Simulated scan of single mutants.
Amino acid sequence: MDTTATQIDVVEQANNIADMVTSSDVFDEYKQAKANLRDDKQVMEKIAQFQTLKEKYEEVQRFGKYHPDFDSISKEVREKKRELDTYPLVAEFKRAEKELDELLTDISQKIAYAVSPFIKVPTGNPFFDQAGCSGGCGSGGSCGCS
């Protein structure tokens, strides 16, 4: 069998999988939740306010607990993050995003493990990542992956 033909077949199958994902209910729910989020002026204002506050927080973080506003900015960021995360459209978007991420992780794992059970697929969940390794072994240290 010709290598080029095999590569073309693999790419074609990958495109088929991508088409199946983008035509799935999970993807449709994600797109709808994202559109609902984008179309809500109130939530977009809250996100913009949070981004501004986050920039202040990052500036304060440079100095850590020695910055005079460290405690107040840190507390305000946590409060605004909680407020944003509990906003119904944001919560719905995060749920849909998580479901899509889980689908893509499942697909990635099936493909990787079909090749070899030793391929590490980062799941974002250390419980499921093999030996706590999520592919970040390039640091030169001993990460404990087997």
Rank of each mutant, 00 (worst) to 15 (best):
K110W: 01
V43C: 06
D25K: 12
E59G: 11
K54H: 06
D69H: 02
K98Y: 11
D40S: 12
V60F: 05
I8D: 09
K65G: 11
R62K: 15
Q49A: 14
S146Q: 08
D85R: 13
Y30I: 00
N125Q: 10
S108G: 02
K81R: 15
Q49H: 09
V60S: 06
N36T: 07
N36W: 03
K98L: 15
D9S: 12
F93S: 01
Q109S: 06
L37D: 03
S139T: 15
K56M: 06
Y57S: 08
A114Y: 12
K54Y: 09
P126M: 09
K31L: 10
R78Y: 04
I111Q: 01
F118I: 04
P117Y: 02
A33G: 06
V43T: 10
P122W: 02
I8M: 06
Q51S: 07
V11P: 00
C143D: 08
T86M: 15
E79L: 14
N15S: 06
R95E: 15
R38W: 06
E76R: 08
F93H: 13
E59D: 11
K94R: 14
P117G: 09
Q51D: 12
Q130W: 07
Q42V: 14
S72M: 05
G136A: 15
M20Q: 15
G135N: 12
Q61V: 03
C143S: 08
Q13T: 11
G140N: 10
V21Y: 11
V77S: 03
Q32G: 02
E58L: 09
R82T: 15
D25V: 11
D2P: 08
V77P: 04
K34N: 14
L103W: 05
L103I: 05
C143A: 10
S23D: 13
E83W: 09
S142K: 10
V77L: 13
S116L: 10
D101S: 14
D19H: 13
G135A: 12
E83C: 07
S116K: 08
Q32H: 07
Y87M: 05
L37R: 04
T22Y: 14
Q130S: 10
D106T: 07
K34S: 14
E29P: 00
M1R: 04
V115L: 13
G132Q: 10
G144H: 03
A112K: 07
G124K: 05
E83V: 12
E92G: 02
Q109P: 00
V11G: 02
E45R: 11
P126S: 09
S108R: 12
G138Q: 15
Y113P: 01
K34W: 05
N125D: 15
D85F: 12
F63W: 03
E99Y: 04
G135M: 14
D2V: 00
R62Q: 15
A96Q: 05
A131Q: 11
E99T: 10
A35E: 14
L100F: 10
S142C: 07
R78I: 01
S108F: 00
K80Y: 13
E58W: 00
E97V: 06
L100W: 08
G141L: 12
I47D: 00
P122L: 03
E92F: 01
F27H: 13
D39F: 02
P126L: 06
E59C: 00
S108I: 00
S139L: 13
I8T: 12
G144K: 02
R95W: 01
